[in-house]
Computed example of a mutant assay.
Amino acid sequence: MFQDVRHSNGSNVQVSEFLLMGFPGIHEWQHWLSLPLALLYLLALAANILILLTIKQEAALHQPMYYFLGVLAVVDMGLATNITPKILAILWFNAKVISLSECFAQMYVIHCFMCMESGIFVCMAIDRYVAICQPLRYPSVITESFVVKATVFMALRNTLTTIPVPVLAAQRHYCSQNQIEHCLCTNLGVTSLSCDDRTINKLYQLILAWTLTGSDLGGIILSYALVLHSVLKLNSAEAASKALSTCTSHLILILLFYTVVIVISITYFAPKTALLIPVLLNVLENIIPPALNPMVYALKNKELRQSLHKVLRLNSKGN
């Protein structure tokens, strides 16, 4: 039975659960969205698992660039799995209830994994910078040890810096209503229901965006600016084309990721009547990149594409 405390005026009342209402403005037919969301989720799982198996089985892919891609695949699966089952439960079974602890846990994982994805893009940009701008130093700089250290650093950075997001949200007093006009437990969406001041929540969200995502994007832009500068100095058009082709897949993923992040940030300032737009984008941001990232790499990276064909042929023969 749903708990609705929208009309409660008692300042001492503390709700024990939230209701995730789904997509605002289209509640009557939002269940039709479950089919494309379920297909995207299955595609994300299948594609990323295939990428991981291919990297594991093919010795030619035992390189830092593909190790980072493997980490990205794990992060993508975690990000999609954190939200999609709950969204499908809402759309299929009207399972809108979510406890406060579950809501804050989902909020934490969303922030942590999104920042982790951003951090892996930085590592991949550094990998391409060293490979193209300092190729002689690449074998000694970008090693398996570097991959491990960079991944651990990013994991610790994002794990620790995103802890205050759910902690601060949990400290708010929720007494007026418990209906969240969203499919997810986002920081600003949840804390907007609190009865006390949430300035610190907004402030930390802004600090987190600038210090982590902002600095990551700055590092990526700098890395690829140096790559472009180095490529333009090459005398051979063929060598320049080959160097740029190795970066194309990275750039497509990065542009997709950060474009959606920026658009979501802008649309949050839109009128309440347009609330569906940021909600829908927020959901798609957690599902579409995990589904598209492996395909973009497979299409744009010849070595990975050939290895995928080889693995699929071997598996088909084995069956």
Rank of each mutant, 00 (worst) to 15 (best):
L156N: 01
S34W: 02
T213F: 09
S176F: 01
C103V: 09
P294I: 10
V75D: 10
P135Y: 12
G25V: 08
Y174F: 05
T162G: 03
T246M: 12
F146K: 06
A59V: 05
G189T: 04
Y224H: 15
S99G: 00
N48H: 12
I110P: 00
L222S: 13
I132R: 07
E102R: 08
S316H: 10
L160Q: 05
F153S: 04
L20V: 01
L253Q: 13
K272L: 13
I254E: 05
S223W: 12
E28W: 15
Y224I: 14
S34T: 01
R172E: 07
L20N: 00
Q57D: 07
I252R: 03
A95K: 12
Y108T: 07
A59S: 02
A274R: 03
V122D: 09
N319V: 14
L156I: 07
L212Y: 05
A95F: 07
Y174R: 00
L314G: 11
L136H: 14
L72V: 09
Y224Q: 12
K310Y: 15
A46W: 15
T267N: 04
V165T: 09
N315K: 15
L168T: 08
V122R: 04
L304G: 02
W92L: 05
L69F: 13
S8Y: 03
M114T: 14
C183H: 08
A239T: 00
K242V: 11
F68V: 03
S245Q: 15
L40P: 03
Q177C: 07
M154G: 06
P85H: 02
F68M: 04
I126S: 06
I87Q: 01
M1L: 00
R198G: 07
A59Q: 05
P278W: 01
Y66H: 09
Y224M: 13
F2K: 01
M116C: 13
L20R: 00
R157M: 11
L284Q: 06
A150L: 00
K202W: 14
L226G: 10
N158M: 12
S265F: 15
N9Q: 08
P271D: 05
Y67D: 07
Q179I: 07
E181M: 09
F121E: 12
Y67C: 09
P85V: 04
Q30V: 10
H27D: 08
M1T: 00
T186Q: 07
I264M: 01
S236R: 06
L251S: 14
L193E: 04
I207Q: 09
L217W: 05
I110H: 02
L43W: 10
I252F: 10
A46L: 15
L53C: 14
F257Q: 04
L314A: 11
L304H: 06
L42D: 03
L42S: 08
T213H: 09
S236G: 04
H182T: 12
D4M: 04
I120H: 08
F113E: 14
A237P: 01
F2M: 00
L226Q: 13
S99C: 00
I26P: 01
V122H: 05
P24F: 01
S8G: 02
N187S: 11
I126C: 10
S8T: 04
T259G: 03
I49F: 15
V283G: 07
A80S: 13
A80E: 03
N201V: 10
V227H: 11
V260N: 09
W29S: 05
C247S: 14
L244N: 10
F257A: 06
T267V: 06
A169D: 07
P289K: 10
F23V: 06
C175V: 06
A240E: 11
M124V: 01
